[in-house]
Amino acid sequence: MQLLGLYNYWVFVVLLMIGFYAVIAKSNLIKKLIGLSIFQAAVFLLYISMDKVEGGTAPIIQAGVPDQIYSNPLPQVLILTAIVVGISTMALGLAIVVRIKEAYGTIEEHEAAAMDSEA
């Protein structure tokens, strides 16, 4: 049952592939960004799930409560940073899509490409 026991990794892999598929296969730029977002979220889950220590609790040191088992706080901190990076990327991506819509009047990748090849 080793394979099923590591179900968090399965979730990570499946989400990653769903996101990646959307990035590659979708022509709609917004859908591409949604895919990218899922892709990144999968990695966030990987980090968050890896810090879980069995029986561990939130890593807050309390006076008078010694020898607790804590979950590892570092990956959570890391992933907070990565989430911020992801949000910035998303914001920038959306902003670019807005400008593409203004310039081309479409957010379909192949339509924009067709318009350029005519020009």
Binding site: L36, T89, G93, V97, I100, Y104, E109, A112, A113
Partner: peptide, 9 residues
């Protein structure tokens, strides 16, 4: 813009 979108992805 389209170039940079590709670059971003």
């Amino acid at each position: 813009l389209t170039a940079v979108f590709k670059y971003l992805i």
